[in-house]
């Protein structure tokens, strides 16, 4: 029996963000939120563990109430229950304050529901890509942790994981409880199943925890509990480019034009002459 908590983030769908060519900015209005895609792999991992060893999978997210949609999705995938951690007091949190709340929620699950053996996260989010939360949560919990996990096995009170680095695959054994972060989208997430959806409709396994339930010191959460702050936003300096755009008559015309431009350009002429043996 293994109790797995999986952390998910409700993020703006960066793929749906459109570019405004007139202003050179990205248009974010009306962009729908989605479950951070790497987190779906983490959910799949949690479900596989549950199916293999028995136990339960619990999803947690710290988000505005609209994230219920995301939690309904993972319940539809087969997650047993979900916790929505939602309170204005948590707003404006950086990764330290966010991970603090998540770690405290995991402790509360251990107290109220039963001992948590494993906390699983996605590698990073598509909106900020910091990859901070898994390590920070491990730091608060004082649990051993490892990133970039592609495979996992539970052996007694230990977990054996495979993980990838730039040039190697490593196998580690960690004491339980521990925190793991799943290598990007290394495992495909299953679809929602009607049976699970119906069960979720009937059992309503989503609980909402505000700070009334978690009882955290207001100095440790939200903006106050965040050591970092954005002091200002500036525009990046655009790299000067020639911006010559050509609409060729036909593919052959395109090829000729490009090669002649690259040969005339002092930056690229050298490599081109070499390539063509000139």
């Amino acid at each position: 029996m293994v109790r797995v908590v999986v952390g998910i983030k409700w993020v703006p769908n960066t793929q749906a963000v459109r570019f405004d060519p007139k202003t050179g900015t990205l248009m974010r209005e009306g962009v729908p939120s989605i479950i951070n895609p790497p987190d779906l792999s983490a959910v799949e991992f949690a479900l596989k563990i549950k199916e293999r060893y028995g136990g339960e999978a619990i999803a947690i997210t710290m988000a505005p109430p609209s994230a219920v949609k995301g939690l309904e999705h993972v319940l539809g995938m087969g997650v047993d229950r979900a916790v929505l951690i939602s309170d204005r007091a948590f707003a404006g949190a950086d990764t330290l304050a966010t991970s603090y709340v998540l770690a405290e929620a995991i402790k509360k699950i251990s107290r109220d529901v039963g001992k948590v053996d494993l906390a699983v996260f996605g590698q990073e989010t598509i909106d900020s890509s910091t990859a901070h939360i898994p390590a920070q949560t491990a730091s608060w919990l004082r649990w051993p942790y490892v990133y970039y996990v592609t495979d996992l096995e539970i052996k007694d009170d230990k977990v054996v994981v495979s993980r990838v680095l730039e040039d190697r695959v490593e196998k580690y054994e960690l004491e339980l409880p521990s925190v793991i972060s799943v290598f990007m989208e290394s495992i495909e997430a299953r679809d929602v199943r009607l049976l699970h959806k119906l069960r979720a409709k009937i059992e309503k396994p989503i609980v909402v925890w505000s700070n009334k339930e978690l009882k955290l010191d207001p100095r440790c959460i939200g903006l106050k509990g965040s050591p970092t702050m954005v002091s200002k936003i500036t525009w990046t300096l655009e790299v000067p480019r020639k911006k010559i755009v050509y609409k060729p008559k036909d593919p052959e015309d395109a090829a000729r034009w490009l090669i002649s431009m690259l040969l005339k350009d002092e930056k690229t002429s050298k490599i081109f002459k070499w390539v063509v043996g000139g």
């Binding site: 960066t14 900015t25 900020s128 970092t228 954005v230 002091s231 200002k232 936003i233 500036t234 990046t236």
Partner: peptide, 16 residues
Amino acid sequence: PPFGAMLLAHIKTPSR
């Protein structure tokens, strides 16, 4: 560069 346009966020850690 944060999520978004060609912007740069200047992040400080003023008290820590």
